[in-house]
């Protein structure tokens, strides 16, 4: 049984992600957020469980649905909110928006809107960490998040082969929500067992089928200890479910593309509600208060931050 401190920590992170995104959905109609948003509500446990198993100086690579992974890895919330507002105080000065969050000081690589694109980039980063470790003696690792759709891109297979060949210190984490926009996995995969395909490259795999945050965390702890000691990459498939529409703040759980009962099944298994029940009432109250305070501060920071000035338009087009 996990200790109370761990339960509280995971609960707070998951709740923070949930509440930030609920708040985004709530204010979206006001147009204060100048960016398309791909919400992670329902998928928080994967990001939180995985990132909790990493060291602070490890690296995560994420996707255009990156709010959860960004917050879970310790990305600056004020800067995230300002980025969504298009403000100069944003993590990318307002130039990147929701789909491309980045926080290099906290080990969060910039995300790409083109599905799968960050997978080989993450592998390249992990190669660099392997070279660095030859001098420093300390092996940092990369955790690459991506969805089931990304595994259909050619660069996924190419990267698996190369990562196995070079024994790169990288964990591939597939957040499988079985939806590519509105296209079901049954219409996209000839073989439902992706682990078989990955294992064919000589890569060890693991699987968490129910979104259990503690199981995700333990799987990454196990994988990281192998990856960190030169045994090459690891692949983990984590099943999860997207509660919101593909892009935007709306609910579309009744739409025809969803399988009957799937939302209800995942909703009943909500990790946040489950963890809330595991904690004392006064502790829950304290965590909730802390979460709301962080969100308020982030919104205030974003509101106060100015829009970028005109000379920002061409700045950084080329590195000087």
């Amino acid at each position: 049984m996990a200790d109370n401190k761990l339960i509280a920590r995971l609960y707070e992170k998951m709740l923070l992600i949930r509440r930030v995104e609920e708040r985004i959905a709530e204010v979206y109609h006001t147009d204060i957020i100048k960016s398309p948003v791909h919400l992670s509500i329902g998928q928080e446990s994967i990001a939180v469980g995985a990132c909790d198993a990493l060291n602070a100086d490890d690296i995560v690579s994420n996707t255009y649905r990156c709010h959860a992974t960004y917050i879970a890895k310790g990305g600056d919330l004020n800067q995230m909110m300002a980025e969504l507002y298009g403000k100069s105080g944003g993590c990318a000065g307002g130039k990147a928006g929701s789909m491309h969050l980045i926080d290099m000081p906290n080990g969060i690589m910039g995300a790409s809107a083109v599905v799968g694109t960050t997978i080989p980039v993450a592998a390249g980063y992990s190669w660099a960490l392997k070279q660095d470790a030859k001098k420093s003696g300390k092996q940092r690792i990369v955790l690459a998040f991506f969805g089931d759709g990304a595994t259909e891109e050619g660069c996924f297979s190419e990267t698996l082969n190369f990562a196995a060949l070079k024994k790169l210190p990288i964990i591939f984490l597939c957040e499988n929500n079985r939806l590519a926009i509105h296209s079901k996995i049954e219409n996209r995969w000839s073989d439902r067992n992706i682990r078989n395909r990955v294992e064919a490259y000589g890569i060890e795999t693991s699987y968490v089928g129910d979104g259990d945050v503690l199981k995700v965390r333990q799987s990454i702890i196990n994988a990281a200890s192998k990856v960190r000691t030169g045994n090459g990459p690891h692949f983990i498939e984590c099943e999860t479910y997207r509660w919101k529409e593909h892009v935007g703040p709306g609910d579309d759980v009744k739409e025809v593309y969803r399988n009957d009962g799937e939302y209800e099944r995942w909703r009943a298994n909500d990790q946040i509600e489950k963890f809330e029940k595991m904690l004392a009432a006064d502790e829950v109250k304290k965590i909730k208060g802390n979460v709301e305070k962080q969100i308020k501060e982030a919104e205030a920071f974003a509101s106060k931050s100015p829009f970028p000035s005109a000379e920002e338009l061409l700045k950084n087009a080329f590195a000087a």
């Binding site: 980039v121 592998a123 390249g124 190669w127 660099a128 190419e158 990267t159 082969n161 190369f162």
Partner: peptide
């Protein structure tokens, strides 16, 4: 061989690999 190496064909992933290594401070 750590600094001069052949690759699988995989031009797409190998380019992404270079981008990632460059972001990490290397000069591919």
């Amino acid at each position: 061989a750590d600094r001069i190496f052949g690759t699988p064909l995989s031009e797409d992933a190998m380019t992404g690999f270079a981008v990632g290594a460059a972001m990490a401070g290397y000069r591919p």
